[in-house]
């Protein structure tokens, strides 16, 4: 038996390997990118979900922005929250910016029983498309369409369309307030609001900017822009614009006077102890019994 075929094969492959090794070495030297190792360290700390909530293309880009700037002014990772902010601050050697934790809030209360369907939608299951087509099943051109564009946009599985109400609902434990749903909603129904102490929040669950009489036709809990809440509020946190009340979450002290005053039950107070909560979730019932 001859050994030459084995020898030739070994030689050919060996030499090829050696040549490629040399080429690879020089190429690697030539195209070497010198990068601050801090970027890697910060990227390691960031959640890595690439949700885009910070406004950057992804976590890596955010880490680069941190390092480039050298401090955390104006940059914050909503998904990571204060814990991540602390770690990043430690790595950068600066003070962590204490941002009020936020949560996505769906400002629509037009569930199937309150904003009854006046037609049935049979097209592409996408809010942006349906919005470009017409006003929606309830006839309200401002409320939640319930087709789930926000659900698709959420990286954290924190928003779902409740099949019973037909409205998107946020899971406040999972929500990191990255704002992806806010961008995805073609009607601007979703807003990032302060999470509040013990997750307690008071907000106007309506986005309808039509005149009260018209808004009422499509939804029984539509804000009619009557301004009673504005007059009631002792802190001046509420203003009415375009027939729609808005509660400034930075000013609101959560006294809930407006909730009781609202004739259409469009102001929701969530996560408060029982009696009030019950009234809020069933606004059709008279509030001051």
């Amino acid at each position: 038996m001859s050994f030459s075929p084995i020898l030739i094969a070994v030689l050919v492959l060996g030499v090829t390997g050696a040549v490629f090794a040399v080429v690879l070495y020089f190429v690697a030297q030539k195209f070497k990118v010198i990068e601050d190792p801090l970027i890697d360290e910060i990227a390691e700390v960031l959640p890595g979900a690439n949700c885009g909530g910070c406004g950057k293309a992804g976590c890596r880009a955010m880490a680069e922005a941190f390092v480039k700037q050298g401090n955390m002014d104006g940059l914050s990772c909503p998904a990571g929250g204060p814990a991540v902010a602390q770690k990043v601050a430690a790595l950068l050697g600066c003070a962590a910016e204490a941002a009020e934790p936020k949560v996505a809030v769906v400002r629509c209360g037009g569930s199937c029983d309150k904003a009854t369907s006046k037609n049935s939608y049979d097209g592409l299951q996408d809010c942006a498309f349906a919005n470009s087509l017409y006003a929606g099943e309830s006839g309200c051109a401002f409320g939640c369409l319930g087709l789930g564009s926000c659900v698709k946009a959420c990286q954290f599985d924190a928003i779902k369309v409740n099949p019973e109400t037909g409205i998107a609902e946020v899971d406040e434990d999972k929500c990191v307030a990255c704002g992806a749903c806010v961008k995805a909603c073609p009607r601007g129904v979703i807003e990032l609001r302060n999470k509040g102490k013990q997750n307690r929040r008071v907000y106007v669950a309506c986005n309808n900017k039509e005149k009260g009489s018209i808004a009422k036709k499509s939804c029984s809990v539509a804000c009619i822009g009557c301004g009673k809440c504005m007059k009631t509020c002792p802190f001046g946190a509420i203003k009415v614009e375009n027939n729609l009340a808005y509660i400034d979450y930075n000013v609101c002290k959560m006294c809930r006077k407006c909730v009781a005053e609202c004739p259409s039950g469009s102001i929701h107070a969530v996560n408060f102890p029982q009696p009030v909560k019950k009234e809020a979730s069933e606004p059709a019932a008279p509030v001051n019994q």
């Binding site: 087509l133 017409y134 006003a135 929606g136 006839g139 051109a141 039509e210 005149k211 018209i214």
Partner: peptide, 11 residues
């Protein structure tokens, strides 16, 4: 003279 909803529900 005020907005009216067109056949597609848009004012």
């Amino acid at each position: 003279i005020e907005p009216c909803k067109d056949p597609f529900g848009l004012a």
